[in-house]
Structures are given as C-alpha cells and as structure tokens.
C-alpha cells in the first residue's frame, strides 16, 4: 500500500501521511482510536435508548388535563384505533431500527477489530451513515407540533423522552462517524 484516500476531500495522499495535502484534514488510520471512540459513543446511545422509550416524547394538554405519550404508547394507541400501517411504520422507525443500528454497529466494530474485509460491509456502513440522522424525524415532528399547537384549549409540550431520543440518535451518528470505513474497505488487506 503506497497511497490512501482522504475521507474529507477525496485527495490521494501517501500512505504514511497524517494530514491531507489538499484540505489539511486528519487522515490517520488509527484502528485503536476508531474502535474505542466509536464504542464509547455506541454505549452512550444505548444508554439513552432506555429513557427515550420509557418517558413520554410529547405531552398533550387539553383543558388543563395533561396526557403524556411514549413512543410505544403511541404505537399501541394507533394499533387499537385500527391505523395499522402508521402504527407499523412508527414502530419500525423509532423502536426497531435503533436496535438494528446498535447491532450493525457492533458487527462493524468487530469487523474493524478483526480486520475482515468485504465490500458488503462497506456498503452496510454507508447505508448506516445515510440512514442514521433520519431517526431524528420523531424529534423534529415533536418540534413542529409544539411550534404549531399552543392554543388555549389544547397545546403540545415536548416530553423528557424527546431529549433522550435526540441524544440517542446523536450518539449513534457520532459512533458511525468515528468508525473509519477505510478500515473495512480499501485499506484492509
């Protein structure tokens, strides 16, 4: 291996270089640092997954009566009302996909640790990277509802769960970013 690619700007650099010749970005290939940083973020994300699902993500108050709704509670309510497709979508996006992401990240971390290369794993990484921030939809929906619905009769206030959920997604994104795809792809031989 004589060359390596800068992840920030795509420039080709010499393998032993630490700073990109073009964009001055950090181009070190540090397996240990990648694994420990990524793992730390991943564990933080898993930690916040618990309050994100335990506490209400938003509170609706109607005529001075406040009612909180958790993500799971919302799904169950939708299911009871017969809105099966919406219930399934929200269950997948907010409950199941985060868990799948945790498993995929563990799997990729293990691949980096073992140095096992496959184009399939790089593809998996890129899917993770693109999908990651989209879990924030729930948080942004709460933001829109809170911004719009504050009437005298009915108003929506965010719940503690929303902050935890946002933190969980943020840490998942950081965990994926800390993993260097070059370590399971082009630099892994």
């Amino acid at each position: 291996m004589k060359y390596k690619r800068c992840l920030h700007c795509g420039a080709v650099n010499y393998y032993q270089d630490e700073v990109c010749r073009r964009c001055e970005g950090d181009i070190r290939l540090d397996k240990k640092r990648a694994i420990s940083t990524s793992l730390a973020f991943l564990l933080s994300a898993i930690f916040f997954y618990i309050p994100a699902n335990l506490f209400p993500i938003l509170n609706t108050s109607k005529f001075a009566q406040t009612q909180g709704s958790t993500i799971i509670g919302g799904v169950i309510e939708l299911w009871k009302e017969g809105d099966y497709p919406v219930a399934i979508i929200i269950f997948l996006a907010s409950v199941l996909i985060p868990i799948i992401k945790f498993f995929v990240l563990f799997y990729l971390l293990y691949a980096v640790y073992k140095g096992s290369c496959e184009s399939g794993k790089v593809k998996l990484y890129h899917i993770m990277e693109i999908m990651g921030p989209w879990s924030l939809i729930d948080v942004f929906v709460v933001m829109v509802l809170v911004g719009l619905i504050h009437f005298n009769s009915v108003s929506v206030i965010p719940g503690v769960g929303a902050t935890s959920f946002a933190l969980m997604v943020l840490f998942t994104i950081l965990s994926a970013k800390a993993l260097d795809p070059r370590l399971i792809g082009e630099e892994c031989e």
Partner: peptide, 21 residues
C-alpha cells in the same frame, strides 16, 4: 389559527425548558 416560523418555534422550545433540543 396558528402559524409556525422556524426561529419562533425554536425559541418557544427554549422557553419551555428544552435547552438541548
């Protein structure tokens, strides 16, 4: 009626005590 301007919505969230979000 109600209308949402993005910055107003963010400020409203802040006033509700949701500093991080």
């Amino acid at each position: 009626k109600s209308r949402m301007v993005l910055l107003e919505a963010l400020l409203f969230l802040y006033k509700q005590g949701f500093l991080f979000i």
